[in-house]
């Protein structure tokens, strides 16, 4: 229990970020026309690929001199993260491209 309390104290800045970011997310999404729900969900999905940073840090500092489980899992983590980021942004762009095409008319 004490450990958890200490942990919270040590990470108080992060808790501030979390609390404020929750409100930020609610604020940004609340007034969205339903036309954009699908692209927005897709865009948000791409941003959730931010885990790729963790993947890069992990694989970047893994000992690669021997083939280890960590190395294989790390490579998969980076590939998965990249798929989420790149695939997510490209799909969102494809959806939004169609809105733009129509506007030119």
């Amino acid at each position: 229990m004490e450990q958890i309390l200490i942990y919270f104290y040590e990470n108080k800045e992060a808790l501030f970020i979390i609390a404020l970011t929750i409100f930020l997310g609610i604020e940004v999404i609340s007034n969205v026309p339903s036309v954009l729900h699908t692209p927005l969900m897709s865009g948000a999905n791409a941003i959730s690929g931010v885990i790729i940073i963790g993947g890069i840090i992990l694989l970047g500092h893994t000992d690669l001199s021997t083939i280890s489980l960590n190395m294989i899992l790390g490579i998969f983590a980076v590939i998965f993260g990249t798929l989420n980021v790149v695939g997510g942004f490209v799909v969102t762009d494809r959806m939004l491209e169609m809105f733009k095409k129509k506007k030119k008319k």
């Binding site: 970011t21 930020l24 997310g25 609610i26 729900h37 969900m41 948000a44 941003i47 959730s48 931010v50």
Partner: peptide
Amino acid sequence: ILGGIFVGSAGAIL
């Protein structure tokens, strides 16, 4: 942290 929580709360409200 920010990116994840931001998507988390936006997704929840959606």
